[in-house]
Design a protein around this nucleic acid. Structure first.
Lengths: 204, 204
DNA sequence: GAGTGACCTGAACAGCGGTTCAAGGTACGG
DNA sequence: CCGTACCTTGAACCGCTGTTCAGGTCACTC
């Protein structure tokens, strides 16, 4: 209703990106508007000019950042020729610390517990992520790369596995290294779909 | 070194429990010392008397609460006669909303990103949880209830799956209901270990 | 060159909330 | 009773931070 005109879209996005950076560094609780403003090379008042409140800024920053991550990942995927390679790349790109936005996801989870809007957006992002997996699987099954498992079931299980494992890796559980996460995920995919790991085709 | 004598152990625990309750209700960021004090039927100054700072209170409250949860769950498990029933119960007791401390776990995760102490404690708790699963599996394999899979591998995969799925359920993803989580976990266990679901043996 | 509207800021406001402190119970030993 | 040690509190302190506001710059129009 009382939605303010949003003015310069670019400046707005700069602030969102700055906010995401600060959140990733300091955490949601410890993020001050002044920090965000400094990071964006602006004044605190300007941040308030673009966002009605700190609350809205934070929620938007988190979802904006995850949206961006998804789009980039999706873009990279479509450039790959085979479903096998796509799935391998998807798994690879989920492994910390190369995948560096897990901290933001975790903050989004905790925010989603009380912020209805954040919860809704998070669900939507995750659902799209699972659909992406399922689509890869279906494509692979259609052209004979993959066998067996139901695509939707598989995507839910793989996505959950990735979430659970990445959590351990990010929080530095000694028993769950990035390498361990990789092997567990790839084993899982191989067993369920009959995929062979794609050797990272070398430089020319 | 400069550790204050901790005085009345009971009062201290009352405060910790009160803190956990407030955190679960309001979230970590929004938890005020006054809220905790009110919940514990005490003054804010008393909370400061038992804990050097708000920071320490929060971290201790989270880990204390999870420790309690684990002990209770473990206790229930040992009362069950067969490995099959133990595993089923373990899965059941992880499903929200019956399992009601997932919000606290999520807060602990986000806190673990920056609080070294919280991260360490979380890792330890999770490792112990996985060992518990692995022990059940080994017992079951020894007496012929279960077959196949490597116990440690299985426990990591099941625990990760549970984390990932519970997350979706807690954050109310429409596609992932509690029932869905149950069936996915049980299917996974059945497939990997050859378990049949234990019918909840009725009231004798 | 006055007017307008988008963009931006420094400075001040306001009140919240962690922390401190001086002091009042209360129990117990001598 | 007096002393002491633990437990508890109301009240004050004070720094911090979200938010507001009055105004300033710039570009562009008539």
């Amino acid at each position: 209703m009382a939605k303010k005109a949003s003015y310069s879209k670019e400046r707005r996005q700069e602030i969102l990106q700055a906010a995401a950076k600060v959140i990733a560094a300091r955490g949601l609780c410890e993020t001050r508007i002044v920090d965000v403003a400094k990071q964006a090379g602006a004044s605190a008042a300007l941040v308030m000019y673009y966002f009605e409140s700190k609350d809205r800024l934070l929620t938007e920053a988190l979802t904006f950042s995850e949206e961006r991550f998804y789009l980039e990942a999706f873009n990279q995927l479509t450039a790959l020729p085979s479903a096998r390679e796509q799935l391998t790349h998807l798994i690879e790109s989920s492994i910390p610390p190369e995948a560096d936005d897990w901290p933001l996801w975790i903050e989004l989870w905790s925010r989603g517990l009380r912020d209805q809007e954040a919860a809704k957006k998070r669900s939507a992002l995750d659902r799209r992520w699972r659909w992406t997996i399922a689509d890869i699987v279906r494509t692979g099954q259609r052209n004979g790369e993959f066998g067996g498992a139901d695509a939707d079931d598989f995507s839910l299980r793989l996505a959950s596995l990735i979430d659970g494992l990445a959590l351990q890796v990010v929080l530095e559980d000694e028993e769950v290294t990035a390498e361990k996460m990789r092997s567990v995920c790839m084993d899982f995919a191989r067993r369920e779909l009959g995929v062979e790991e794609v050797d990272k085709a070398g430089t020319g």
